[in-house]
Measured scan of single mutants.
Amino acid sequence: RLRTTILPEQLEILYRWYMQDSNPTRKMLDCISEEVGLKKRVVQVWFQNTRARERK
């Protein structure tokens, strides 16, 4: 499996959503993934990793 590259524009959108809610619902993940143009699972893992980084 290839690692997904997240573009700066996509990152900006993801962080904007993250500021609103760091733990989005499944429905929100659907909306975010549509807006960003990434698979739902990629967005979900990005949120998990970002929460983990914040805890450090």
Rank of each mutant, 00 (worst) to 15 (best):
K40N: 09
K40F: 02
L7P: 13
P24G: 03
K56N: 11
T25W: 00
R1K: 15
V45S: 09
T25P: 10
C31P: 05
Q20M: 13
S22A: 13
T50N: 07
V42E: 15
Y18P: 00
Q10D: 06
V45F: 10
L11V: 14
Q48T: 07
Q10H: 14
V43D: 01
M19H: 14
T25M: 06
K39R: 09
C31A: 15
Y18S: 07
E34F: 01
Y18F: 08
E12H: 07
K40R: 14
R26K: 15
K27E: 14
R51F: 00
G37H: 02
L7C: 14
V43F: 00
R26D: 15
L14A: 02
K27Q: 10
E9D: 08
W17D: 06
W46S: 02
Q48A: 12
L14T: 01
E12R: 07
Q44V: 06
I32S: 01
Y18T: 03
A52T: 09
E35N: 08
V42R: 07
R26T: 15
E9P: 05
E12N: 13
Q44R: 11
I6Q: 04
K27I: 06
T25H: 03
L29K: 03
N23G: 04
M28D: 09
R53L: 12
E54N: 10
L29S: 06
R26F: 09
E54G: 07
L7R: 14
E35Y: 00
T50G: 03
R53S: 13
Q10K: 07
S33Q: 02
E35H: 00
K39D: 15
Y18G: 04
Q10T: 01
Q48F: 03
Q44H: 07
T25G: 11
V42A: 05
L11W: 08
V36S: 13
V42S: 05
S22D: 13
G37V: 02
Q10Y: 03
A52F: 03
K56Q: 08
D21N: 08
L2N: 14
P24Q: 01
Q48L: 07
Q44L: 07
S33L: 01
Q20H: 08
E54Y: 09
S33G: 05
A52W: 06
E54H: 06
E35D: 09
G37M: 04
Q10R: 03
N49S: 08
L11K: 14
R1I: 12
T25Q: 07
L14P: 09
L2P: 09
G37P: 01
M28R: 10
V43G: 04
W46P: 03
Q20D: 09
W46G: 02
R26P: 14
E9G: 10
P8K: 07
K27H: 10
E34A: 10
R26E: 15
V43W: 03
L2G: 14
L14I: 00
V36W: 02
Q48I: 12
D21A: 05
L29I: 15
L14N: 02
Y18A: 00
W46Y: 05
R1T: 01
R1M: 05
S33I: 00
Y18Q: 01
R16P: 06
R51D: 02
N23D: 10
P24R: 01
V43I: 09
R55Y: 10
Y18N: 03
M28Y: 01
D30W: 07
R51K: 12
W46V: 05
E9I: 00
L11T: 13
E35M: 03
Q20A: 12
N23K: 11
V45Y: 09
I6Y: 06
L14K: 04
W46R: 03
K39T: 13
E12M: 04
Y15A: 12
L2H: 10
V36M: 07
R1S: 10
E54A: 05
L2S: 14
Q10C: 05
L7Y: 06
P24I: 00
R51A: 11
V36K: 08
L7K: 11
S33F: 02
K56T: 04
E54D: 12
V36Q: 00
N49T: 11
F47S: 03
M19G: 13
C31I: 15
R16T: 08
R41A: 15
K39M: 01
R16I: 08
E12S: 01
I6T: 07
M19W: 11
L2T: 13
M19T: 12
N23Y: 10
V36C: 13
Q20K: 11
C31N: 15
R1W: 05
K39N: 13
L14C: 04
Q48V: 07
C31D: 14
S22F: 02
L14W: 00
L14Y: 03
L11C: 03
E35R: 01
K40L: 06
T50Y: 03
Q10P: 02
R3K: 14
V43K: 00
Q48H: 11
Q44A: 12
Q44S: 11
Q44F: 02
P8I: 07
E12W: 02
M28P: 03
Q48P: 01
M28Q: 13
G37T: 00
E54T: 06
S33R: 04
K39E: 13
R41T: 14
Y15E: 13
Q48N: 09
V45A: 08
W46D: 00
V43Q: 03
Q44Y: 07
L14G: 00
E12L: 04
N49K: 10
L38Q: 01
S33K: 00
L11Y: 09
R1N: 15
E34W: 04
R51M: 04
L11E: 12
T50E: 15
T50W: 02
K40Y: 10
K56Y: 09
M28T: 13
W17C: 09
P8T: 11
K39S: 15
A52M: 13
P8N: 06
L38N: 02
S33T: 09
P24K: 02
T50I: 03
A52D: 14
M28G: 06
G37S: 00
G37F: 01
R41V: 10
V42K: 04
L7A: 14
M19P: 02
D30Q: 10
K39V: 03
Q48D: 15
D30L: 04
Y15G: 10
R16G: 11
L11P: 01
E35V: 05
K40G: 07
V43R: 03
P8M: 05
E9C: 06
S22R: 12
E35A: 04
V43A: 00
R1Y: 04
P24L: 04
E12C: 00
R3A: 07
D30H: 14
E35W: 04
L7S: 15
R1G: 14
T50M: 13
S22V: 12
R16H: 08
V45P: 01
V36D: 02
E34Y: 04
N23M: 09
C31K: 13
N49P: 01
W46I: 04
K40I: 07
I32Q: 00
E54C: 00
W17R: 13
R55A: 13
E9S: 08
Y15F: 09
C31L: 12
E9H: 11
C31M: 14
Q48S: 13
L14S: 00
Y15V: 11
A52H: 09
A52Q: 11
M28E: 12
T4A: 08
L14V: 03
K27M: 06
V42H: 07
Q48K: 14
D30E: 13
R41L: 08
Y15Q: 15
V42N: 06
L7D: 15
V42P: 00
I32V: 05
R26I: 11
T25V: 02
I32T: 01
V36Y: 00
L2Y: 14
G37R: 03
W17T: 05
Q20I: 12
A52K: 12
R51T: 09
F47Q: 01
T50K: 14
E54I: 06
